[in-house]
């Protein structure tokens, strides 16, 4: 899966969780939760959606590695290669 494809899926999942937000406006280094005003509960739903879509497992201690669009994309790519 290319970086662009991963990003498109991330945008789609974010849009489902925060329908009124504009995930496409995220810059690579923006903090996703802050920019899109996602609370703790929705953040957990987002991680669940990520794991289901990409077939990965995101342990709690990795939450710090997926805070920006750039980090999240890299994280998913690394996980998929494993």
């Amino acid at each position: 899966m290319t970086e662009l494809e991963i990003k498109q899926i991330i945008f789609k999942l974010l849009k489902q969780i925060a329908p009124d937000s504009e995930p496409e406006s995220l810059m690579p280094d923006d903090l996703i939760r802050q920019k899109l005003e996602i609370d703790s509960y929705d953040a957990l739903q987002f991680v669940i959606a990520l794991d289901e879509h990409f077939g990965i497992q995101t342990p709690e201690e990795d939450y710090g590695k997926i805070e920006t669009l750039k980090n999240l994309t890299t994280y998913i790519q690394d996980k998929q290669f494993k």
Partner: peptide
């Protein structure tokens, strides 16, 4: 939470 699946994970 380590013993739980993602969907069962607890929030503080």
């Amino acid at each position: 939470n380590k013993k739980r699946t993602l969907k069962q994970r607890l929030l503080p």
